[in-house]
């Protein structure tokens, strides 16, 4: 063993180091250390880290996929041309003149915005078109349809009261408020969205606890290392930081994996989905989330990972400091 040089140093000089690295540069060096040491830990144990990431990724894929499907369907229904009004069927005996006169009279009502009269002939053409049997040779004299007035109510109008008032007109046979099925569809979509949120929240919790559990195991695994670090003067923050980074890496890589899974799932169902959509003459596809949504997801899951790690580490580290 070599002998240290024998120049006598003042005792003040000794121990000066404790403050030598303070400030922002020391802080950034600490972060650099945590950044690389946490990555190193994950790479050193690729199988267990990989399995955790896959479990997390799968837990994220389900709510993410559901969210995209529901979003797609709700967008689709918004595209449906909504006639947001009342269909007023007149008596079959009503003539064209009477129908036009009634229609202009109704349009003066304060609760009505506009009235659009549809002649029996127009109605028949439209109906046959819908049924896919256009041009089957119905003549005007065979037309069983009455005149119909499509009434757009004013915004503030009470539809029920308006339809009652309309029924009092002798020429009007029936008033149909044609919104029920759309309203039901809206409710269904709303329910679907709720289900996605509930499933999402539950799986987020699972996500949080899987990360917390993994970090807990890691802290346990590195108990000795933590004790040694505390012994040579590491602060709790310094010891905690690499684990928080690990949580962040878990979250980020799980989010990326979930995005990959969703895109693959989208490809998997694209052919039958396109077939279905074509048969309804609509466009429907399971689109990948946008770039900004993906980045948001990745960052959000990273933060969730930090939170999970924090919970696990704070609860485990107390043993490294003196017992009273």
């Amino acid at each position: 063993m070599a002998r240290p040089r024998k120049n006598k140093r003042s005792s003040q000089q000794v121990g000066r180091l404790a403050v030598a690295g303070d400030g922002f540069r020391a802080w950034s060096r600490h972060h650099g250390y945590s950044f690389f040491s946490s990555l190193g830990e994950l790479i050193r144990r690729p199988v267990s880290a990989g399995m955790t990431v896959v479990v997390l990724g799968l837990a994220l894929t389900l709510p993410l996929g559901l969210f995209l499907v529901v979003g797609q369907i709700s967008q689709l229904t918004q595209g449906i041309d909504r006639f947001n009004g009342l269909s007023v069927f007149l008596e079959t005996s009503v003539t064209e003149d009477e129908a036009i006169r009634l229609s202009s009279e109704l349009s003066t009502w304060s609760e009505i915005l506009a009235v659009d009269p549809i002649s029996p002939a127009e109605g028949l053409t439209e109906a046959l078109g819908h049924l896919g049997v256009a041009g089957t040779g119905f003549g005007p004299e065979d037309n069983p349809l009455p005149w119909v007035l499509e009434v757009s109510p004013a915004m503030e109008a009470n539809l029920e009261a308006l339809s009652k008032r309309l029924m009092e007109e002798t020429a009007i046979e029936q008033v149909i408020v044609d919104l029920a099925w759309l309203a039901r569809l809206d409710l269904l979509i709303h329910l679907g969205e709720r289900v996605v949120y509930v499933v999402g929240v539950l799986l987020m919790l699972a996500f949080l606890f899987v990360i917390a559990h993994s970090i807990r195991m890691e802290v346990h695994h590195r108990r000795h290392q933590i004790e040694v670090m505390a012994l040579v003067g590491a602060t709790p923050a310094f010891i905690r930081r690499p684990f928080l980074y690990s949580g962040f890496w878990f979250g980020v890589s799980a989010a990326i994996l979930a995005l990959v899974f969703v895109v693959l799932a989208g490809w998997g169902v694209s052919a039958p989905l396109r077939g279905l959509a074509d048969s309804y003459q609509i466009s429907l596809a399971l689109n990948a989330p946008s770039v900004s949504a993906s980045l948001g997801l990745i960052l959000g899951m990273g933060c969730l990972g930090i939170l999970g790690a924090w919970v696990a580490v704070s609860q485990q580290l107390s043993g490294a400091w003196p017992r009273d």
Binding site: L17, R29, T235
Partner: peptide, 11 residues
């Protein structure tokens, strides 16, 4: 190196 890393000394 551990005590120096903890003290935030440059590499």
């Amino acid at each position: 190196a551990l005590p120096l890393v903890i003290a935030g000394v440059s590499y």
